[in-house]
Design a binder for these strands. Structure first.
Lengths: 115, 115
DNA sequence: TTTACATATGAACGATTGCTCATATGTTCA
DNA sequence: TGAACATATGAGCAATCGTTCATATGTAAA
């Protein structure tokens, strides 16, 4: 299936959803959610909502070791959820694009709804 | 932290995000994303976007065994993503609330953005 | 160039995951 | 009640995951 050709508003209307399900889209979709599905990684993202941070400050913010945070940053970076830039001795991480806030926001709505 | 007292629009504005990160919210958030982070479960959800379905039809739609689908339906149900009702010999599953479409929609936007 | 700092990375591990297979439970109809 | 169908569930297993520990890499300042 030519994923590039899909317009978002069409996705929900594919006949019986079968084409969508058999495309690669569910794989990509599951992948992004899988990456968001760990509390250390979510905390990193939440910490980056307000402002960019270096690894040391992220580790402090989420209460995990530098190594653990660094490993998870790599996961987040390869999923294009965060981006990095060097600033002197530090490497400063920030959210990669605005969709992430949307995703987290929707997640929060579901959480709020189920409390 | 009194989660129930949080208004959604306040969440992003908590001082430096620290309160949010130290609350139980990241745990809940990661949990919902973790459940969405498997392609079989995402396919099930996509299959239910258009209409409710029984287990047999779901298994067919997602191309997995009845047992595998049943196991995953239990995960989806305990995360309150789907609900079930008996209809004769069958058990018919449907999405539990409207937020799920919002979540999937946001996920699709991210996917579309990164293709 | 040496030292100290900041980050990344590889190996190893215990824990969790998602599937299959076999079987149990529940429902309908003869 | 018994047979056939629909779904759920438990055990078992291979694969994946997230952490720690030790160490490598990269940068800045002395």
């Amino acid at each position: 299936m030519p994923v590039e050709k899909l317009r978002l508003e069409e996705l929900f209307q594919l006949q019986s959803g079968q084409q969508l399900i058999q495309s690669e889209i569910p794989i990509f979709l599951a992948e992004i959610f899988r990456v968001l599905g760990d509390s250390t990684r979510i905390k990193i993202i939440l910490a980056l909502l307000s402002e960019e941070k270096c690894v040391y400050h992220l580790a402090d913010a989420v209460g995990m070791s530098q190594s653990a945070v660094s490993h998870q940053l790599r996961v987040l970076k390869s999923a294009r959820l965060v981006k990095a830039r060097r600033e002197g001795k530090n490497i400063v991480y920030s959210l990669d694009d605005g969709h992430i806030e949307g995703l987290v926001g929707q997640g929060l709505e579901h959480v709020a709804h189920n409390i």
